[in-house]
Amino acid sequence: MAQLIQVTPQGLYCPQGDFYVDPWGKVERAVVTHGHSDHARVGSQQYFCSATSVPILQHRLPQAGDIRPLAFGEALQLGDATVSLHPAGHILGSAQVRIAAEGEVWVVTGDYKRCADPTCEPFEVVPCDALITEATFGAPVYQWQPGAETVGEIYQWWMENRRLGLTSLLFCYALGKAQRVLAELRRFTDEEVYTHGAVEAITVIYRDQGVATLPTRATTDLPKDHSYSGALVIAPPSAHRSVWMKRFKNVSTGFASGWMRVRGHRRRRGYQRGFVLSDHADWPGLLRTVRETGTKKIYVTHGYKDLLARYLCHEGYAAQSLDTLFTGDDTEALSEKEIAKAAP
């Protein structure tokens, strides 16, 4: 069997095409699945990504000069490999990388999910001979209800807080999750929502690409003594208990993440409410994906990789875990610089 992907100190490498997928080192050619910081890193000379990812990469990697867009499904010849990108359903522009060479097809999923999300292209099943899948939530206790239901709970929480005269502070990933909440909330209201600067910047990028969200207003533009009573404010987790948070008086804090499925995680992070909302595949979603791609060989990265790999072997697949530097964590902290830039 051919080996289309190897793990090298720089990251996942395709020797046939001489390129890397989401390299964590500095390389010549990087194919990037999506804009989260454990996947899109600085220092490479040339980046390929989906067309809808380009503005996100430009925002996240302002120094990167050479970012080349690929339409979903468009074939790109790199060396002896044919490369194409296919929607992963994780965040706007997120892609799986399909690599064809030596008569075989390998797919690197990047981060992905299988449930509906109005802010991004839905996951596409790509048949393959080998699948490199994430397993951020690769344990059977992680099972999601539809995002719309969870966002309904967020809305109820917001309204209950309003009744009590509290400001609702919802913390979530600034790229992807925040916009998903803002889009799903449109089912319930057309009210304006306040945003932390880091969330606002990404929301503007989403809106420019035609994603419908509730109207937003950055707290950065408002005087310190502005009243937020009864309002909903969305911010990245790194802003929790920060100086920025001091401007809000009576608050209720919530956190939207797949980790909130487990009570221990909820309690130790110190948020009052946890909402189970993830942009990663849950356990049934991971198993379904492996099944539907028809692959026989699976490499597992991120999170509960040993657990998922062992279970897949138990189910008769050839599976093993791969050591990578992807975290897939739902709670990615922004870099200090990014926070400083977004919230003076």
Partner: peptide
Amino acid sequence: GMPEWLFKDAYHTVGDTAETVALL
């Protein structure tokens, strides 16, 4: 119908049997 080791691994991600079972 899950194998016992899988239940145990799931338990270790949760840290509480009653909760692990409820989630499963």
